[in-house]
């Protein structure tokens, strides 16, 4: 745990110091504890919101991934794969197009209904009478994503202004977001994280199967409901702030499971820390790889996370 926190601190420091203007870590530290108005301070200041956002988004996505995988007892649960991000995106684009919400600042409230709807549809589609098998849920997610994407494309192509802001947002990026966004999503992320962290024992019970869980005195229905709310809130917040970033919710739980085992309490705790590490690291890679331009974090996570999907599938087969 200490190692994980250490890694997070290191990544945060790097995130503040690396970029088009690289600063020595020592100077970053000075600017943080004793802010002046030197050039270095300005640079650090400009990187602070981005880093904070990365931490919030990373924690939110990773934890929602754990909860989703626990709830569906499905190692392929990921907000991106299951269409929740697409749902949030659709509802934001709708709001911008029809209700005159300023496209610069999509709020969490706007993203919520779409995300929730997507969660419900995917669960309805994916959980049949004999319980949802992993492939089923993923395919249901792919269907939902495809239909929603068609809708979003139709809207954004007919309204050039919407398209123009949408195409920057949809890649998933931490850069150039309004610092006010952080204040906007902070309460949602905190509530979502709190809800999720108390779910640990419930998810552990659920992992034994519905009947066993009930026999052990757990409340599967209550756990499911809380979990659904928590994942929706977390995904909506993360998506509203940074755009749809895929695969964080898939990759982090799988990495964590490698050294904690299947206990959801530990999974959740580690994900809170390692989610930000993954997102910030992806952001860093994006900044360094094609300097002086930047690769959006969503692009990097897709290329890191796509192979993770494969690892997950192989592990799944090996386990059975």
């Amino acid at each position: 745990m200490l190692v994980a926190i250490g890694v997070l601190a290191l990544v945060i420091l790097l995130s503040l110091s690396v970029g088009n203007k690289a600063l020595p870590p020592l100077q970053v530290w000075q600017s943080l504890i004793a802010p002046g108005d030197s050039y270095a301070d300005a640079v650090v200041n400009s990187r602070v919101p981005r880093t904070v956002l990365g931490v919030l988004v990373g924690a939110a996505l990773a934890v929602s991934g754990v909860v989703m995988q626990g709830l569906t007892r499905n190692p392929l649960g990921d907000p991106g794969l299951l269409g929740v991000n697409a749902g949030a995106a659709a509802s934001i684009v709708t709001a911008v197009a029809f209700f005159g919400v300023p496209s610069a600042a999509p709020t969490v409230w706007v993203a919520l209904p779409g995300a929730f709807l997507a969660v419900v549809i995917v669960h309805l589609l994916g959980s049949g009478p004999r319980g949802g098998k992993p492939l089923r849920l993923v395919l249901a997610g792919a269907v939902v994503t495809a239909v929603i994407a068609a809708y979003v494309q139709a809207l954004s192509l007919s309204l050039p202004d919407v398209f123009d802001s949408y195409r920057y947002w949809v890649v998933g990026s931490l850069a150039g977001r309004d610092p006010a966004v952080i204040a906007d999503i902070l309460p949602f992320v905190l509530v979502g994280l709190a809800l999720s962290l108390v779910l640990g024992p419930g998810l552990n019970a659920l992992a034994l199967g519905e009947d066993t869980a009930t026999a052990l005195g757990a409340h599967p229905t209550r756990t499911r409901l809380t979990g659904a709310v928590a994942t929706t809130v977390l995904c909506a917040a993360a998506t509203a702030a940074a755009g749809p970033i895929g695969f964080v919710g898939l990759a982090v739980p799988h990495i964590v499971r490698g050294f904690t085992g299947g206990d959801h309490r530990w999974l959740l705790a580690y994900s809170v820390i390692l989610g930000p590490v993954l997102v910030l690291a992806a952001d860093l890679i994006g900044r360094v790889l094609v300097r002086p331009q930047e690769l959006m974090v969503g692009v990097v996570t897709a290329f890191v996370g796509g192979p993770m999907l494969l690892v997950a599938v192989r592990r799944m087969r090996a386990g059975r």
Partner: peptide
């Protein structure tokens, strides 16, 4: 199919 979905996510991101 699952691997294909992953690959298609990468292509889409790109």
């Amino acid at each position: 199919i699952i691997v294909g979905i992953g690959v298609s996510a990468m292509g889409y991101a790109f």
